[in-house]
Amino acid sequence: MLKTRVITALFLLAGLLGAVFFLPALGWLAFVSIVCALAAAEWGGMVGFSAGPRRAYAALLGLLCLACGMVAGLHRDDTVAPFGLVPLYGASALFWIACVPFWLRKRWVMPGNRTAALVGLVLLVPPSLAMAHLRLPSPWLLLGVMAAVWMADIAAYFTGRAFGKRKLAPNISPGKSWEGAYGALVGVVIYGLICIGSVGHGLLDGPRGPIAVLALAVFTAVSIIGDLFESMLKRQAGIKDSGTLLPGHGGILDRIDSLTSTLPLAGLVALWLAR
């Protein structure tokens, strides 16, 4: 199993880096739209859609992502700040910050297919567009944001294994601890401050420093919330993985759960800095 996971991870990393650095803007937008469609197919299966509606839903979300991206100008390399994405990013941020924490606390069950379809749209389309958006200034910006999420996962895992005693959400994800969450926070803040400081432009001067720390803390919290949300839905559905597309890793949703919650926030920050 470990060998399979490592091989799959290497192929995923090589494919991601190749697409990020070498595809033109339109090609990258098409790529993330396909990822959105594949993730939507997994989402449909997880919330109980039958085969026909599941395929139709996946195609719809993939095409919607592509269409929204082209309207916002994400298919052009000269697009600087696609402010038309603000409503989508805002809806996503509102969902993750104002809705999901209560959902997790009450452990609500998805009430029906219409709600599941709407939640899937908010869950998948904004982060897919954010992937296309954040690559436009520089591929390194997108990779840097994604690396912050990976840093949170890695720091939480090792800190939790070493010091974890108090369960974070025992009824949702028994392996996660408060100590792991604190480790993720410290890891992301240190990583983020190093990255921001290396960029320069006075982004940490004066009151901007504490604001940056607060933003990184919120980013970490939302990353954990995204992970917990998918864990809860998988537990309610009685499945271990969202799919089988990635040998040793499960499905696409299993790999992007924290990215779905954090990428739109990063998109909002990028647009705020570009205003």
Score class of each variant (00 low, 15 high):
250 G>P: 06
38 L>I: 15
127 P>K: 04
149 V>H: 00
40 A>Y: 05
258 S>C: 01
127 P>T: 09
173 S>D: 12
243 G>P: 05
147 A>C: 05
195 C>G: 02
266 A>R: 11
46 M>I: 14
209 G>K: 14
183 G>E: 03
58 A>F: 03
13 L>K: 03
42 E>F: 00
107 R>H: 12
185 L>F: 05
84 G>L: 15
208 R>G: 07
233 L>N: 09
161 R>V: 11
107 R>C: 02
163 F>E: 03
93 A>Y: 09
141 L>P: 05
23 L>E: 02
232 M>Q: 15
40 A>K: 07
172 I>T: 09
123 L>P: 01
33 S>K: 09
82 P>T: 12
166 R>W: 06
138 S>P: 12
113 N>Y: 07
167 K>T: 13
105 R>I: 02
209 G>I: 10
228 L>S: 09
33 S>D: 07
159 T>E: 00
172 I>N: 08
223 S>H: 04
28 W>K: 03
91 A>R: 02
35 V>F: 09
117 A>E: 06
102 F>R: 13
125 V>P: 00
75 H>W: 08
32 V>W: 04
203 L>F: 14
71 V>H: 04
64 L>Q: 06
36 C>S: 08
41 A>D: 05
196 I>G: 11
167 K>S: 14
56 A>C: 10
9 A>Q: 03
59 A>T: 05
191 Y>I: 10
164 G>A: 09
59 A>V: 11
